[in-house]
Every structure is written in structure tokens, then in C-alpha cells.
């Protein structure tokens, strides 16, 4: 009986091919999802890395694996960056913060991984802060709750990195910025005579006062509070015209004088901080004048002249 036999070189080639396939399959089977995700990370394929790793995180091997949470958090941070998303609803950022905080909380990261996780968290925290500031700079009515929440998240990340971190200075600044943002809208006269005008005025005063609770002797906050109170009084006064009755005139005067008297207190406190500052001297001169106190107004007028002579 004649048997069919393959030529030797063909048999060798087939054997090599089968061997390589087996080797490759054996190697893939040996790689964990984390290791495979890491190779995607090295290639910059964040979505593939996330798709591979995220479903595994509820499983026992990974739920308490700091390195896995760290890689996942890093991937989510990169996804957030790539998405260009912003605001409270940027989900990749929320997930990234959660994963990185969990990685750090497990306490088993290498020194290098821990530093990278902290840097990533710091980046995410600052992104909240940047967005809060952007919204303050382009402030519109109704933006305040989101700004406060963004700042709250910034503080939360900061505290996670350093539980002893003191946020008082930032809060004082934030409320001062919000006071200024409200006051700027108020000055723009877009809401003149509308109910929103009072909302803006109350908002400005409330934020300046909150800021002063955190930093009581802060000169710009004291000065801005005084100016906002004074200017609001003047705003009422400017509405007086030929149709204003005598009774209305008296009422408006009462409101204005009340605001001028309130303005005097922070203006004097600001003056105590910087006794030779011209804007405060001018403010005191003007407020006393508006309060029909010409002698006191003249005192500050003379001080202004003295300061100007020194220059």
C-alpha cells in the first residue's frame, strides 16, 4: 500500500506555524485584563482600555486592587480631557475622581503610582476651579449654584489630597469675586428697575459679607461693599424726576440715607486699613456729603489735598 507523504519542508513550515499560534494564544490567555488595558494605555487608546477594564472593577480580583483603580482613573481622566466636556455633568471627570480617590484610599500603590494619582487628582480639581472662575468672569443671573457646586468639588478634591488643607482664603476670594460679579451686572443697568436688580444687589451684599466673615479686614472687599451700598442709594436717587411726588421724594431719601449710612461703616473700616488711600478718602468725603454732613466731608477733602501734596 502506497502512503501519501508531505514533503519535508512543508511539514516543517506547518509545524512552525502551529507552534507560533499556540504560543501566541497561550500568551494572550495568560495576560490579565489589567495588563491588556495597560497595553492600550501605552498605545493611547483610552476607550479600548476603559472598555476592557471598567466591567472588571466589580469583580473580586479588582475591587480592592489599587493599581487597577489607578489605571482606570488615569484612563477616565484622559477621556475627560479628550472629550472637552465641562460643568457638573462631565461624567468622565466624576468617574476619574472617584477611581483615583479609591486607588489612593486602598493605600497599596507604589510611590510612583501614588504621585501620579495625586497629580491626576490635582489636575481634575483645578479643572473644577478653572470652570468656576470662568463662570464668575462671564457671570449671568442663575449661574451662582453651579459656581458654588464647582467650587465645592474643587475643595473636596483638595481636601482628599490634603485633609489639613485650609480653604478659608479661597472661600473669601470666591465670595468676593461673586460679590463683584453681581455688582458688575448691577452697574450694567440691564436690570434697572426690574425685580432682578434687587436680587443682584442682595446677592452682591450677601457675598461681600460672607467673604468678610472669612477675611474680616480685607481692604478690597470692605471698599467694594461700601461702594455697592452707596451706588445703590445713588441709583434710587437718580430715578427722581418731575413726576416724583413730595411724599415719594421723602421715601426715596429715607432709603438712600439708610444705604449711605450702611456704606459708611465698611468705608471707614477700609480707611483704617489704608489711611492714605485716595479712593477711600474720596469715598468718605462723598458719603458724608451725601449724608448732609459737610464738616465731616471737608475733613476728608483736606486729607485728600494733604496726600496729593505729598506726591
Amino acid at each position: 500500500m502506497k502512503t501519501m507523504r508531505m514533503p519535508l519542508f512543508i511539514r516543517f513550515t506547518c509545524a512552525l506555524a502551529f507552534g507560533l499560534i499556540a504560543l501566541c494564544m497561550g500568551d494572550a490567555a495568560a495576560q490579565t485584563p489589567l495588563e491588556r488595558a495597560e497595553s492600550y494605555v501605552r498605545a493611547g487608546d483610552w476607550d479600548a482600555a476603559h472598555a476592557l477594564l471598567a466591567p472588571e472593577m466589580d469583580q473580586a480580583p479588582y475591587a480592592s486592587n489599587a493599581r487597577a483603580w489607578f489605571v482606570l482613573g488615569f484612563v477616565q481622566k484622559e477621556q475627560f480631557k479628550a472629550s472637552g466636556a465641562s460643568g457638573l455633568d462631565a461624567e468622565d471627570r466624576i468617574r476619574a475622581v472617584g477611581s483615583l480617590q479609591r486607588a489612593l484610599a486602598l493605600g497599596t500603590l507604589t510611590v510612583r503610582d501614588e504621585q501620579t494619582a495625586r497629580d491626576a487628582l490635582d489636575y481634575l480639581g483645578r479643572s473644577y476651579f478653572r470652570e468656576a472662575i470662568e463662570r464668575v468672569e462671564g457671570f449671568t443671573l442663575g449661574a451662582e449654584p453651579e459656581i458654588l457646586e464647582l467650587m465645592g468639588r474643587y475643595e473636596s478634591v483638595l481636601r482628599a489630597l490634603d485633609p489639613a488643607y485650609n480653604v478659608i482664603e479661597q472661600r473669601a476670594d470666591l465670595h468676593r469675586y461673586l460679590g463683584q460679579a453681581h455688582a458688575r451686572l448691577l452697574e450694567a443697568a440691564r436690570y434697572a428697575g426690574l425685580p432682578q436688580e434687587q436680587v443682584l444687589f442682595d446677592g452682591a451684599i450677601s457675598h461681600y459679607e460672607t467673604s468678610l466673615n472669612f477675611a474680616p479686614a480685607h481692604y478690597p472687599t470692605l471698599y467694594n461693599l461700601a461702594i455697592t451700598l452707596y451706588n445703590h442709594g445713588v441709583r434710587q436717587l437718580k430715578r427722581i424726576n418731575h413726576e416724583t411726588s413730595m411724599f415719594e421724594l421723602m421715601e426715596i431719601q429715607d432709603v438712600c440715607v439708610g444705604l449711605f449710612e450702611q456704606a459708611l461703616v465698611p468705608m471707614q473700616q477700609a480707611h483704617q486699613q489704608r489711611p492714605e488711600r485716595l479712593e477711600t478718602l474720596k469715598g468718605l468725603m462723598t458719603v458724608h456729603y451725601a449724608l448732609s454732613q459737610p464738616e465731616k466731608s471737608d475733613v476728608y477733602k483736606r486729607q485728600i489735598e494733604a496726600v496729593l501734596q505729598k506726591k
Binding site: 478690597p220 471698599y223 436717587l237 437718580k238 479712593e279 456729603y289 451725601a290
Partner: peptide, 10 residues
């Protein structure tokens, strides 16, 4: 300080 004093003669 950003706000300016309203210089209207009240």
C-alpha cells in the same frame, strides 16, 4: 477694587 464710586451730586 473694581467698582467705581458714582460721582453723581446726590
Amino acid at each position: 477694587t473694581t467698582s467705581g464710586l458714582d460721582e453723581t451730586d446726590t
